[in-house]
Write a protein that binds this DNA or RNA. Structure first.
Lengths: 259, 259
DNA sequence: ACGGTGGACTTGTCTAGAGGACTAGGTGAG
DNA sequence: CTCACCTAGTCCTCTAGACAAGTCCACCGT
């Protein structure tokens, strides 16, 4: 049985924070394991001798910290941390291209479905102001928009949207759902644009309601956003990729540039 | 005068969300400018005809989204977005080392103070479990801990903590507040460890109360965390740097590896 | 001119209670 | 067996009020 401890009304720290502290400790020390249910509001009201709102305040605090998620009608549960992934998925794909792809993956791609990716959507739209600016396009020019959602262990972890100028994509498989071996970077290079450099803008923020839904996360956990721009050897921007990612650890690697 | 609109009780969306929506729109459309004060709770209670807690719920929502900050006894204010910085500051320093440093910066460093950095703290401690693991140390070995806070336009934007094994730092200026030209990387290389590679783990989360205080941010805005590990040419980890950053955009750049 | 005090206004915290909505499990009718 | 219904338990939302604490400023006495 979980030791809920007691609160001390003589001390400076408000009761709802004390309760949050107790629960937070239990979670951090593993006494409340991921997926496990917290004591119900009623139990805590009884135990601590406080009003309903006080307990709810405590739980709300843990929710905004992303430690727990509440499920209407069921209870409050310790959030199970999504698995750590080594790299953002596009990088993953690029790396495979470089290092030689496993027969399994190549086969899956040839069959038109890549494990871990669902909800692929490809459209042809006028460039938004921001995309046009990043790609150096005129506002009326059109882009191919490729949106996809990545899964890990059946849970969504990332939504990525690529924008490629229609002028580059024309005549290639870029506008197809299945872009063929090597993905869009291979197609871009076949179209005569040799990739040379990327920039990435990284930031974090709270998700929009839409993103919360797509990524299936609680409102308390932040998302990482990456806007990657790919440039070719002539310095032209050839692709912009906007990635929104469940904010769990991933790893970048790079070498020290030669001196 | 700000148009507070009205709420509709016949509709599905709960009143506190409707109020939050109205305020959020005002903020996003600039009718409530950064730094500007929101109507007080009393005003909104009167205007919408709801209870105090309902208004507070609405404001709480905006707070967890990081849109507003409340100041006890003063009011609730639209959060002014921290300035965008191009690069994390350590990278900045590294780049300067590579590209040649401006006379101004070199001079400032020689004088022992770097513009934009305050609260430098250098200690010698036993390695924590995590740091020991990352640096490949035994638990009893000691590390030099260098903590510093970076400012931009007078506001804190980043707290970085470096851990260097005492065995490497011994006899160098690494344990001094002023590490001399080129910073700790130059000192590490002088000690015979040639830097070869970095890994970085990036994630985002909600700040701890302590971090909120140091970075002077509201509780609603997430922080980016970077744990960078530097390796030398022999594959030994020589430094771990833990960076907690106000989650505003910054830029990474890298080249496409030669094929 | 100066300093202290008090009051108005603000947000922070808590209480006590109500009805609603969702989930899961059991029960009984068909 | 299947389906509809009920019920207990859970969290969601809202009301109405209370006192505490921080901020600001006008006022008053010195």
């Amino acid at each position: 049985m979980l030791d809920l401890g007691t609160i001390d009304r003589t001390v400076d720290r408000p009761p709802y924070r004390q309760i949050a502290d107790i629960l937070r400790q239990h979670i951090e020390r593993g006494r409340l394991a991921p997926g496990e249910q917290l004591p119900s509001e009623a139990v805590m009201i009884e135990h601590y001798g406080v009003a309903r709102m006080t307990v709810r305040e405590a739980i709300k605090e843990l929710r905004t910290e992303g430690l727990v998620v509440a499920q209407h009608g069921k209870g409050v549960f310790v959030r199970s941390a999504p698995p750590v992934r080594r790299l953002a998925s596009d990088r993953f794909a690029r790396r495979h291209r470089q290092e030689g792809k496993s027969a399994f993956l190549a086969e899956a791609e040839a069959a038109g479905h890549v494990p871990g990716v669902d909800q692929i959507r490809v459209t042809n739209e006028p460039a938004s102001a921001e995309v046009a600016e990043r790609l150096g396009l005129k506002p009326w020019e059109r882009v191919i928009v490729r949106a996809r959602r990545y899964l890990a262990d059946g849970r969504p972890v990332e939504v990525a949207t690529s924008y490629i100028p229609e002028s580059i994509a024309k005549g290639t498989a870029i506008a197809e759902v299945n872009t063929g071996p090597g993905g869009i970077y291979a197609r871009i290079e076949e179209a005569g644009y040799e990739l040379a450099r990327f920039t990435e803008e990284v930031s974090a923020r709270m998700p929009t309601p839409d993103e919360r839904k797509t990524l299936e996360i609680g409102s308390g956990s932040p998302v990482l956003t990456l806007v990657r721009t790919a440039f070719d050897t002539k310095g032209r921007a050839v692709e912009v990729c906007d990635t929104v990612k469940v904010a769990t650890s991933f790893v970048l690697e790079y070498d020290v540039p030669a001196k």
